[in-house]
Structure formats: C-alpha cells, structure tokens
Design a protein around this nucleic acid. Structure first.
Lengths: 199, 199, 199, 199
DNA sequence: TATGAATGAGGGTTCATTCAT
DNA sequence: GATGAATGAACCCTCATTCAT
C-alpha cells in the first residue's frame, strides 16, 4: 500500500536542482542568484525545493563540492601517460574552447566566497588536497625518471600548478582577443620549461 | 552664497566613500555589501551618499577602476631594473605576507563579476591593457638584450604573466598551510625559467 | 477486501495525533506549532494525518475539548466528600508540582484563542458549563448543610471559582520563586474563608 | 542646512506602531498578527517599520512592557485610600464593562507566550514585581491598622491577588452571559472576606 | 492505509533608492 | 551639503494543504 521510498528519484531531483542552480550561479553569481530564480530554472516551487535542500547554503556547498571534484577529475586515469606536463595540464587540454572555460568561471565565485566563508574554504581545500596529492605523486615519479627537475619541492609545485590551471579562465576576461589554442600552448610551454631538469 | 572652489572636498568625500566600500566589499563581497553597510562604514547617511554617486554600480565601477590601477602600479618606475623577472613580478615582491595578498582578494570578486557584467569586464580589460603593454615592452627590451627567449610572443606572454600574478592570492585558499616566501620564490623561479633564452 | 471492524484502530490513531499535537502546542503554542512538527512528533506523514483530521483547526478543537474535559474531570466522583472547599479545589490538590501546572499552560493558549475564535470560545463555554453546574450543585448542597454562606449566588460563585483555579498556573510565571505547596494552601484558605457562613 | 534630529517625532512613530501592533495582536494573537498586517494598520511600509524596530520580537516586547505597566498603574496614587480591598482591586474597579476587560485579553497572549519565551517571562516578572511590592506594602500597612489578618504572608498574598485580578477577563470567556457588575462585586467580596481579621 | 512529492501564498526581513526638510 | 524618513519589491524560507501512487 505504502509507496516505497525511491531514493534514486530523490537523488535525480537533487541533481536537477544542482544543475539549475549551477546555471543560475553562472549567470548571476552565488549571491545574485535567488532561490526563486533557481526554482524557475528547475521548474519547481520554492516549497518543494526546500524538500530537497535545507537552504541556499546547502545548495551552494554541494554544488561547489561536485563542481570542484568534476573540474579536477581529468587528472585521474592519466597517471600512466609519459609526458608529465601533459598530465598536469590535462584539464586545460581537455577543454575545447573558451566556452568550456567560461563554464569554469564559477570557480571565481567560489574563490571570492571562500575568502569570507569558512565552509566554502574548507570544501575548496578538501578538493584541492586530492588533486595536489595526485600531482605531487606524478611529479615525484617524473623526478625518479629524470624528467622533472629533482630540486623542486613537489608539494609546493603541485599547489602552484593547480593555481595556474585554475587561473586559465581569467585570460579571456583580461585579454578579450586572445586565441584559445595559443594560450593553451603558452601555458604548456611555461610549465614544461619550469619542470624540465636543469643541466 | 555661490561656492565654487570646493571640488577638492567633493573629491575627498568620494574617496572616503570608495575606501569604506572597499572594506565592505572585502568583508562581504560585491553583492553582499549593502549601501547601508557602506553608509555606516563611511559614517554617512544614505541620502548623502547618493549625492556623490548615482548608485551602487557606480561605486563598484570606480572602486574597481582605482583598485586595479593601484594593483598594477608597482610595475611603473621599475623599467630600468636589470632583471626582467623581478620587474614582471614586482607586484608579488612588494607584498610582505598573505595578509597583503588577502587584500587582493577583491580581485576575485571582480573576476566573478566581470564574467557577467560587461562594464566591469571592460574596466578589467582596460586596466590590464596598460599593464600588458608595459610588460610587453619590458619583454621586448629583454629580448633585445638577449635576456629573454626571442621566440616568445611578447603580447601573449605578458597576458599570461598577469594572470599568474593575479592567481597568487588563490594559493592560501587552496592550500591553507603554505608558506608565503617559498611560494613567492617558486613563482619567480618558474617565470625565470620560462623566459630565459634556450641554448 | 472490505474491512469494517477497525474503527478502534482509527480512534487510536486519532488519539495518538492529538497527544502529539498537545505536546507541540505546549512547546510552541497553537499557532507556532506546525502541521509538519505534529507529523514528526506523531511519526506520521502529512498526507496520512489529513486522513484522520480535516485540518489543523479540527485538531486544535478536538484537542481543546478533550483537554478541558480532562482538566475538569477531577471534580467528578468527589461529590460525596464532606468538605466543600476540598471538592472545589480538587483540581489544584490533584496536582503535585508546578510541573503539572506547567502542563496546564495550554489553557492560556486556549483562553487567548477563545478571545478571537468563536468555535474555541464555544468549546470553552460548553466545558465550563458542566463543571459550573457541578460546582453550583455542590455549593447549593453545602448551603443546605449550613457549610456555605447562604447569601452567595451559587451560579456566579461557581464561575469565579473556576476562573481562580484556572488562574493558578499563572503564579509561577509572575513570581518565579514561589513555592507550590504554600500557594496551594493560600488559595484554599481564601476559598474557605470566602465560602464559610458569616455569623 | 542639515535637518535636526527630532527624537519626539521618532518616539511618536514608535508609539503609533505599538498601538497598531496592540490592535493587531488583540485581533489575531501575537503569532497570528503579521508584520504586514501591522504595517497596514499603522499605514506604513514594511521597510519603514524596520526603521523603528529591529524586528517583530522587539515590538512584542516593548508592547508587553508598556501594556503591563499601564495595566498595573491603577494601583499607584491610591495608597492613602482607607479600604484595603478597594485599593487592591482598583484595577477591576476602574473598568466599566467587559469591553474594557476585553482589552486586557492581550494578557492571555502574554501568559501563553511567557510559558515558552524567557524574555517575555522576564518582562512579566519584572512588571509584576513592582506591583507586588506595592500590594505587599499596602497589606502590611493594613495589618498594622488591624484591618488585615495579621497571619497572612503579605508577599504571597499579594502575588495571588495579582493573579486573581488578571484572571478576571477570563470570566466572560467561560461564562458568556455573566454580568459585569455582579462579578466585580463577587470578587471584591471574596477578597474582603479573605483579608479581614479573624476573631 | 500510508507515503512523500508538490504547491503557491505568505511569513519576517533587507534592499537600493528617493524625498522632504 | 546633509539628514533620516519613507517606499515597495525582492530576499530566503515555512506554511497548511492536496495529490498521485
């Protein structure tokens, strides 16, 4: 008689909301996007939205978490690749255009928010942690193979590389006419020269 | 009755408001800081504030303009310095701690806003333009002196260096324990290796 | 398929809901307690609750009815007691502490509500009626036995005694340090002196 | 040039709001009366109302405070009256009808709220304190003159008398047809018999 | 029976802005 | 120049209630 709980549907709805929220945040910012906008975007009444999330903060936080883990997922499964720089910059290489990068602009929202909101800051740190360890290991392996300058502190270098990758979407904002492919190559060149062993 | 010669006072008040706004934006974000907060911070009534600025947008825009030009002012007056990398990273070298960098966090607000607001985007582009030209000239001069790799496109390289400098305040957000001095050195090393002529 | 003989279960569930509602009303007030709170307290879904009651008002009304009749039930079965004052104040004497009295606080909610809501006012009047008649009869019997001042209008006196009993839970709110036993004795003394025949 | 602060006008507006709120609370209860209702009643926009009060709670609290102090103000200035009972029940005697008493019904709202809200409870206690001391002094003076039973604890007796006075508005709710004058006399009689010295 | 998805009006509150003085 | 009174739309969120299953 009683309807069974269908957690998959529940989870689907949550994802639907998160995607709608992501679009709104992209268009209007974390604070500028209102619950009622998200509701319209998700074709859902406000009362119902609160059935799935306890508040706006929770939406932002889960969105941030999933967004960041997706953003950095490119690194995984590429550990066997030979060229270290290619692995490190796989995220950039996986993008096809500035439109893709534009989609990343939500990172700025998060960085701005992280400066004032400890919870967002922790989410950011937690997500960076995993990637940083991955990059660090890759660098260490590269050093062992003689492909990476052995004098570099792999921990700090990894952190900086993440920052650089995350800064890439900045370029079109500061330099409207820039070409996507060329800037990608430029970053790669810089990283490669940075890492290669000094003779 | 007619008072004509007090435009200096007028300008002083505007600056006072802009500084108050800057502090509020730093604490609460561009959207999170309200006019009434800014009024309190500037010890001024809302009606009076609107005597100096036509609205919140105008405050944000002028604040952005002045903030960005101040941020990049370090480059000027250092053109005669010998070491190219030092010139290029003078902004970073002028900071003494992450606290100084924290003050730069407002840049994230602006980058986030620039993604959606054309006027802010233009202000950002206009300000970057000047610095980019400056950096570009420095790079060209460096190439002429044989200190910079001649194969690099100076325009694009300059743009990327700005992005890197602007990404620096990201680091403590992603990697809470990082040391300020070491990360500064790491960035410098990377840039130097990137630019030096290939043999 | 047809089940007919489960009206007891139906009634049980209704009581369960009423008890849960009572607890919520006590904690948050008639207007402050929400249906969803009551649902949680009764471990029941909102859809199900509406299977037993047509709405919040109905819950309040039946709760009020049962609460009031329970509150005044003490009077019954004590008619043969000799001392008139003891009968009249049996409700107060049946309480053991202010905790019990606290449980009576819901009466204030009802009195407040009765001031604006005619249906609650009627429920209150109807319940008081029964008790008032009971008290009135007790007083008349007392007058016949010469234990109660014969000049008192028994109807009005009964009404006032109910008000006094109902006002008892007020005391700890107004006089936080008061002792329960002493205030009980004080009320009894007052009532006894009031009722006793004048010589 | 700058307009002077006119604190009297500010205070006037606050009183205007409090009166509007009082009427709304009387009609719909403390929780049932909404800010927007109060705004309509006070002919004022919601934004403006928050210029005078930081929130609904503050309105309730100040209203409660002023209401209670007004309610008990009758006692003052009657200390020289000869008859103790008359002084003690001056509040009841000052009313002319149940309509006057109806206006007191807001007390039930406050009593109900006091059961859950510590701040309201404190306001209630603080206001009762003053009156209780006044009554207590009156009783002590009456004992000295031999008009009041010397065996009564004046503190507790005073507390109970307040409760009785406050319970008076209950009567028409429980007994719709009751006569105002007669019930007033009845209460007075009871109090007088209670207090008079025992021979 | 029983569930929880779904609604949309309304809750208290804050907002950028304008106005009379 | 300067004040703070005044607005009303919009903010996030909760409500009592209904519906499909």
């Amino acid at each position: 008689m009683a309807r069974k709980l269908v957690p998959e549907q529940h989870e689907e709805k949550r994802q639907l909301i998160l995607e709608a929220a992501h679009r709104c945040f992209l268009r209007h910012g974390l604070q500028g996007a209102s619950i009622s906008m998200i509701c319209k975007e998700a074709a859902m009444s406000p009362g119902h939205l609160y059935h799935y999330f306890p508040g706006k903060e929770a939406i932002i936080e889960q969105m941030a978490d999933e967004y960041l883990s997706a953003l950095h997922k490119h690194f995984e499964g590429q550990r066997e690749t030979r060229d270290v720089a290619t692995v490190l910059l796989s995220e950039i290489w996986s993008m096809n255009s500035w439109d893709d990068a534009a989609h990343c602009r939500i990172l700025f929202e998060l960085l701005a928010e992280a400066g004032r909101n400890e919870r967002i800051r922790n989410i950011l740190a937690r997500n960076s942690d995993g990637v940083r360890r991955l990059l660090s290991d890759t660098l260490t392996a590269g050093q062992a193979r003689g492909e990476v300058d052995a004098s570099l502190n792999t921990e700090h270098t990894a952190a900086m590389l993440i920052a650089i990758v995350d800064a890439a979407p900045m370029l079109p904002l500061m330099l409207p006419g820039i070409d996507f492919d060329e800037s990608r190559k430029l970053i790669t060149t810089m990283v490669r020269r940075f890492l290669e062993p000094r003779q």
